[in-house]
Design a protein around this nucleic acid. Structure first.
Length: 639
RNA sequence: GGUCCGGUAGCUCAGUUGGAUAGAGCAUCAGCCUUCUAAGCUGAGGGUCAUUGGUUCGAAUCCAAUCCGGAUCACCA
């Protein structure tokens, strides 16, 4: 039981004893850490009881405080300040915590339970390299997996690779036409980047081919279009030429966009990509072979990047293998009457009663849409691992899609429905707006990693901290610092919030950063080295510890925060929010730095203080290390 | 237009069930290295918590309305 929970229980018992007729619920008791300007460790708010107990806050506080200090050895002192009961926790609680847990490698973690959770994250398309936005997804997914593990869950980290579809055909078409047989080897280019280059090339050509068609459409020439499109285009042009639309820039842009889409769909190269997709689905050998080759290049590139990022997966799903799933589920849904068929043969679900729209599940020609295959993979995942929960780490632009997915699964009575959970995160944007891979305005993931390593090296050299390291060690150190900074930067904010990243301003290595935490850890390790104490020492020399001198303020602040770690770890899992661990670790490092500045460990006033402080810093280092590790961030012993 | 999310210091963000004078970091200014790593520490300035009303002992937090920003509402994925 956490200390806060113990205080609540003690207070509830006390109130029950002091006011037998009263009905005090545990949930009415608010316990906070005491503000620094007051004496005490934790504070009970008295106001909620005033009315029911018909006591003035101060009188009530006196009764409650006296009772607690007298009857419960957890408390040694109390003070009342305007409606708040400030309690001082006995030193023995703190010293017990230290002696029992200062070298506990899994402090705050829960034993493994029979609860299976899948975290699906990363889930890239195979037509282009990973960008900055994917990094947020990868770090978030990895961290959540680790945090859930530390809370006792059995976690399967999964990656659903979107390896088929029109996007990869675009890269393939452009490669066929313009690459002249180029391979990653022949061009010395990372495979995912090579394929991505041809995706960009495709879009360049598409743009070139779209312009004249659009031009002709605006001149009333619809010869490029098929009959249906020509009809639609004519209507759009008519609407566009209305005076009230011409004056409204938003409306005009919208129509222009629709016309552009029509034009794009009738370019030669777009039609070629569509034809290639048809050939792929028909199993055309040559197309399949090229597809396999180019995907192979991309996987090679991805696996390098994943390795550098330090993320991993227990299970890979490939869309080419799962995109046909889901049809059976739809057929069953039709039989059950949950779904309905329209005249053209397309299958829909009516969600209007739930405040949503009708949603298409099978096209008129019987082919699947995105939702169909997601239904299928949801069931597949559930059957593969008997999941209690299935987490999808997906950007918030898909909130609606995920809401609909869960709802449809529920309506179909699929047992996996309950466990579906969308871990929705905000997109990473540039100061100029969203990143668009088609327009090449993305911040590339590999470039970003390189930039961070460069920054780590530059700042380490500037600070003159390279002495005593081999080249090999330095390389590792820059990696630890650079990647740590990158991960922390992306994990330190609430996942739900979108974030703006300005590439011109490089990521800082000071202040609220991983570097700050790494530095505190390195300082601790340095002290331990000089004192010949292991980073994780055994109990010998500490288990007879007896404290006679009172805590210094900085010591107390540190130990109170160490004691809160289990609560933080649980909360990070419950809220699906690794940023809580980042804030916590930073705060802990801050408290350590203050403590370090004020008190000497090696030359402590007494042997007793030295022992106390060694336990304090060992435990601090351990929790810093562990909490950051769960976020995928390593802490060096020297920097 | 419907639905959902967001608006806190110049900037980036904390602030979980309502609790004390709203906190960090960056940036600015002023101090601190002969002593365990100054990538650090101490201090100062900086706020109409978008606006208005409501609920109550008490509201950044809950409710309502309004304003602003974003996402989404495809026989795309």
């Amino acid at each position: 039981m956490t200390l806060v929970a113990q205080i609540k229980c003690a207070a509830a018992d006390a109130l029950k004893h002091l006011f037998p007729e009263a009905d005090i619920q545990l949930s009415m008791i608010t316990v906070n850490q005491t503000k620094p300007e007051f004496t005490g460790d934790y504070t009970i708010v008295l106001f909620p009881f005033v009315k029911q107990l018909r006591q003035k806050p101060d009188v009530l506080g006196n009764q409650l405080g006296s009772y607690l200090v007298e009857k419960n050895e957890l408390f040694t002192e109390f003070q009342i300040v305007s409606g708040f009961l400030n309690l001082t926790i006995s030193d023995s609680y703190w010293t017990n915590l230290l002696v029992n847990h200062f070298n506990d490698a899994h402090f705050g973690e829960k034993p493994k339970q029979d609860r299976r959770v899948m975290v699906e994250y990363s889930s890239p398309n195979t037509n282009k390299p990973l960008h900055f936005g994917h990094l947020r997804n990868n770090f978030l997914g990895f961290a959540m997996g680790e945090i859930l593990k530390a809370n006792g869950n059995q976690v399967v980290k999964a990656n659903l690779i979107n390896d088929r579809g029109i996007h990869i055909c675009k890269s393939m078409i452009a490669w066929q036409r313009f690459a002249d047989g180029a391979t990653p080897e022949s061009t010395d280019t990372k495979g995912d980047h090579l394929v991505g280059d041809y995706y960009v090339k495709f879009n360049d050509i598409l743009k070139e081919q779209t312009a004249p068609i659009m031009d002709r459409i605006f001149h009333g020439d619809f010869d490029d279009l098929d009959a249906a499109a020509a009809d639609k285009a004519a209507k759009l042009i008519a609407a566009y030429n209305k005076p009230e639309v011409k004056d409204d820039k938003d409306k005009a842009d919208k129509i222009k966009g629709d016309i552009k889409e029509i034009a794009q769909n009738h370019t030669e190269i777009q039609l070629a990509a569509k034809e290639m997709l048809r050939q792929w689905e028909a199993g055309d050998l040559e197309v399949r072979k090229l597809w396999e080759t180019m995907n192979g290049w991309v996987y090679q590139g991805f696996s390098e990047t994943y390795k550098r990022l330090g993320v991993d997966f227990d299970k890979m799903y490939y869309e080419s293998e799962t995109y046909l799933l889901g049809k059976e589920i739809v057929v069953k849904g039709l039989e059950k009457g949950v779904l309905f068929k329209k005249e053209d043969g397309s299958v829909w679900i009516d969600l209007t009663a739930d405040g949503l729209d009708e949603k298409l599940l099978l096209r008129g020609d019987g082919t699947s849409v995105y939702m169909t295959q997601d239904l299928g993979t949801a069931v597949l995942k559930y059957n593969d691992f008997k999941l209690n929960q299935s987490i999808y780490v997906i950007a918030d632009e898909q909130n609606y899609h995920m809401q609909v997915l869960k709802l449809i699964l529920e309506k179909l009575g699929e047992p996996c429905a309950d466990g579906v959970f969308h871990l929705s995160y905000g997109m990473v944007e540039l100061p100029t707006g969203r990143m668009k891979s088609r327009e090449g305005t993305v911040v590339d993931a590999d470039d970003m990693i390189n930039e961070m390593l460069r920054l780590a090296q530059e700042q380490t050299e500037e600070a003159g901290k390279t002495e005593g390291f081999t080249q090999e060690e330095l390389k590792k150190l820059y990696n630890t610092i650079g990647l740590g900074a990158l991960k922390f930067y992306l994990l330190r904010v609430d996942p739900k919030k979108k974030m703006i990243f300005d590439p011109k301003e490089s990521i800082d290595l000071h202040g609220f950063t991983a570097t700050f935490i790494q530095y505190a850890h390195a300082r601790i390790c340095s002290i331990l080295r000089k004192e010949h104490v292991a980073v994780m020492p055994d109990n010998a020399g500490f288990h007879h510890f007896k404290m006679t001198a009172p805590f210094e303020k900085a010591e107390k602040d540190l130990i109170i925060t160490l004691d809160q770690y289990p609560m933080m770890l649980e909360s990070a899992a419950a809220e699906y929010n690794p940023s809580q661990l980042c804030s916590y670790a930073f705060h802990l490092a801050q408290l350590f730095n203050t403590f370090y500045d004020q008190h000497s460990i090696a030359n402590a006033e007494s042997e007793e203080k030295k022992q106390l402080r060694l336990m304090l810093i060992v435990m601090t280092a351990q929790i810093l290390r562990r909490s950051m590790k769960l976020c995928g961030i390593n802490l060096p012993e020297k920097m």
